[in-house]
Design a binder for these strands. Structure first.
Lengths: 188, 188
DNA sequence: GCACGGCATGTCAGTGGCTGACATCGCGAC
DNA sequence: GTCGCGATGTCAGCCACTGACATGCCGTGC
């Protein structure tokens, strides 16, 4: 066995989740999280830039999923269809974790500081998507605009998926939202 | 003369602007801002919820401009045209202050924490716009989606306006961005 | 013209997020 | 077996932000 228990990062994430849910975000201190994980506050801040970031450790992976799916869409596909593939990839990834996503969304909705962090993550998705569209030949500023619209689509679909009593699945809701917008983004 | 110099809020804003520009955002403390304004740190935090908020005091007024213009658009106008009126109102408001907007944008672009705040302000524009569209008869979730697209349009136009060497005016850039998207948002 | 209450500010003490500097020590490379 | 690396611990400190209470001009009512 090593000098320390393994998986410290994951332990911190789990401790944070549990305490944020139990006591609320503001009432939880970084020291409490660290203690519950058997670590020190300083170590918490080595793994996560701030108290909020611990709730967003997954974000990079989902973003990569999105841009990869768009990048790998057949070259003949119009931007709209490449984007559809990307959004569906994200939808398929999140669909199985509905309950966890719901809890997480409720936590974020209750705390403006967390919404801010969520929004900047969305902006980073948008920027990455815009780059990918450019690489597929979409010119600026259409690429940036189209990317923002695409993120708006997933978000609205996501919110319906979280909110609604019925259990329509996320990919379906994404497709529906996509149908409501005529994406510009023609090749030239 | 009153017990104190008047316009303390404005003095704080100006002091903050000057110091953020001169020394950078993080290197400026709230106490320094207050001192430059002839006030105390505590008073700074009575006027502004945090160090960032002082850069966004104008935001509510512009949001009101937007929703009012949309609300007052002739009832016969399609949502797309009502939105166009709203966005043009915002464009017309910002156009005369290009240099100030440019400086402000540069400051924000250099600091992720400020971007976060900017994004949540945009989200509040979007939410207010969605409500207004609903009041005009646009159903959910189309209203929310359309509102987000509208905000994406102003943002992309705004960024071009800020960035570009030439001096095309903001209302024109907004109209151009609007043309790139077919807004859904039909009445029923 | 005086008492009074409100309101913007001041004062003070405290909490907690976050950081830099330095110490510790198991583990793998060689 | 030594050595250096990397993850963690320890400690001291800054500053954003807050609650509680004090102060004193100013308008209001009488």
């Amino acid at each position: 066995m090593g000098r320390w228990e393994p998986h410290s990062r994951r332990r911190l994430e789990e401790a944070a989740l549990a305490l944020y849910a139990r006591d609320g975000f503001e009432k939880t201190t970084a020291a409490q999280i660290a203690e519950r994980a058997g670590l020190t506050e300083r170590t918490f801040f080595r793994h996560f830039g701030d108290k909020r970031e611990v709730l967003f450790s997954n974000e990079g992976a989902v973003r990569e999923l999105l841009v990869t799916a768009v990048r790998n869409a057949p070259e003949a596909h119009a931007p709209r269809d490449a984007i559809a593939a990307g959004l569906q990839a994200v939808g398929g990834e999140l669909q199985p974790r509905r309950e966890a996503q719901r809890r997480r969304a409720a936590l974020i909705a209750a705390h403006p500081e967390l919404q801010e962090r969520e929004l900047i993550k969305q902006a980073s998705w948008s920027a990455a998507l815009a780059d990918t569209l450019q690489a597929r030949g979409v010119a600026e500023p259409a690429a940036r605009l189209t990317a923002k619209v695409a993120i708006a689509i997933v978000r609205v679909a996501f919110e319906r998926w979280i909110d609604e009593a019925n259990d329509r699945d996320l990919p379906h809701l994404i497709a529906e939202a996509l149908d409501q917008i005529e994406l510009f983004a023609s090749r030239e």
